[in-house]
Design a protein around this nucleic acid. Sequence first.
DNA 1: ATAGGTGCGGAAATCGATTTCCGAATTAAC
DNA 2: GTTAATTCGGAAATCGATTTCCGCACCTAT
Lengths: 338, 338
Amino acid sequence: MAVTIHDIASYLDLAPSTISKALNDYPHISTATRVRVFEAARELGYYPSASARNLRRRRTERIGFLYGFITVDVGEYASRLINGAVNAAEKAGYNVLLYPLTGNQPEKLTRICNTGEVEGLLLMGGEHLARSINLLQKERIPFIVLNRQLDEPDVSFVSADYHKVTYEAIHHLIELGHNRIAYVGQNVLEKLNSDRVYSFRQVLREVGLSVDESLVTSAGPEPGAGYEVMHKLLDLADPPTAVLTIHDPLAIECLHAVVDAGLSVPEDVAIIGSDNLRESQSTKPPLTTIHPPLAEIGRRAMEGLLRQLSDESVPPTRLILPAKLVIRQSTVAGGESR
Amino acid sequence: MAVTIHDIASYLDLAPSTISKALNDYPHISTATRVRVFEAARELGYYPSASARNLRRRRTERIGFLYGFITVDVGEYASRLINGAVNAAEKAGYNVLLYPLTGNQPEKLTRICNTGEVEGLLLMGGEHLARSINLLQKERIPFIVLNRQLDEPDVSFVSADYHKVTYEAIHHLIELGHNRIAYVGQNVLEKLNSDRVYSFRQVLREVGLSVDESLVTSAGPEPGAGYEVMHKLLDLADPPTAVLTIHDPLAIECLHAVVDAGLSVPEDVAIIGSDNLRESQSTKPPLTTIHPPLAEIGRRAMEGLLRQLSDESVPPTRLILPAKLVIRQSTVAGGESR
DNA sequence: ATAGGTGCGGAAATCGATTTCCGAATTAAC
DNA sequence: GTTAATTCGGAAATCGATTTCCGCACCTAT
């Protein structure tokens, strides 16, 4: 049986409350007894019961990480976000709980919010996102959405400046002479990825290009969907000469589709991915890609959430961090090739 | 303030204990009142306090996931293991807590074990592993080591049959005419990766090759270390014609080193990686690699751990799952090229 | 009619800490 | 020398559930 505060109390012939105060650096305890208590605690191997202190303090020092991708392999993407978040939590003495959210399970989410098992939530994309946000707004629990920019003014998020980097990407393509630029998004994320498509359309107009809706496409979540979409794009009467995709794995599928069609990248079709995953470096040719600071997004989101927890009056965290365009050979031939 | 069992009790004019029993399907409660209680609970929006029930039940239904990689980016590797584990936990109503273990912090580990915040632990590799196992054996807490095979008979682990697949890999290389085969391991994991090097040496002997110790190497954890090691191997008087590495990213560094030396893969040097990461498909040439069923390792480990928790008398989980050799063009030219 | 079940629900202890309130003892103040 | 202030530590309530033990009411058997 574990050593409790009572054991220390009877060992030292003191009251349990005294032990608690001594260990928690409360006032009204003399230095002498404080030292005695600490020594006894170490000697007896005392560790406070997490459940007991959670109950009494009404705080668990735990944050839930909600994610909901189903088919897509988002290992590296997710782990960069999570790493940033976990490290920030660690510094503040908080732990992170993983909550996979597959399918539609509102009861589960409601339960998580109301049992007090976590103090706040971080939300990573997935088809659940829109629904989850709606639900969470009704609950008391603080939460922050990762890597999405939201319009509702009260919802917290930490994202990257996709609008600006989309501008850079399109500008980059235009400088290379492209004017038929396609967009390949992803269905699962659709509702809340509208910010990305929106930027795409907006930027095209800004630079004076018209938006050809037949070039604004969306792949399903199943593997190979990007390949299909690209295939169809190439079959158009007037196919695109450049493609902007929302995720590197999707870009890679597009790359394969182009190559399999007997065309070459970047000469016939230029391709830009997103997230700068490790694999984007080793494709043939290497991918030009948008690099959002995922780990920092995770970190800043966690920091914002913890701030909101410690002080009710803190305004929502709405942060947009700079993203970079990493230029490789899927848009510009030559250069640093491997 | 949240709705408690007392609120339901006074609402229905019953005793709190009755509410608890009704909700938890205890006997000695009539169906009529049981129904009334469930309805009232739903009506009032009751959710049990996790902390309170954890305290009383002495169970948290949480498992800790300990990991300790520092510099290496192990996103995809880790997420495959974690996904398997989390999904299995989910099915049993358990949650997973993430514990990054950076550097040497035995106090932290001891605390995790003794505060009762988790019921058991899953351990993913890292330089902490050997130390952590030693420490955990002294604590009461059940734990299972992922993707390592251990000699001590009482330690639980779930791993892949690396010995067998190493045999297949070496056999594959020998069939291709190689007889100077190098090994590139990784320092950070050294102590407990001895099983892998051991298999390497063992298999070489089994097939009648002598072990040239100058070809058995180890890269540090810093990025670029694999590149350096490969470079040195190529500088040997009698350089290897094939390399077996312990992780795909390392294999990719070796690949770059070979190419940069003006040699070609697989003609001059054949390369075999491990883990079958996504990026191993898109290198030039694509990597032949060992594919361990990482998600299943995670799943089986979690299942084993939960079994041990529910029944003290269950023997240690010591599982070795089959691994496959995925043959691509880093060993055999031609074939399905991209 | 009485003893013995049985079914249903309540009272109270408990899990292990935190926290409030109180009191004794010592010191300071006048 | 009496009162006030201060310091230190204890008693008991509390967090919100679970669980043990008990007792009433009703039924059955003799």
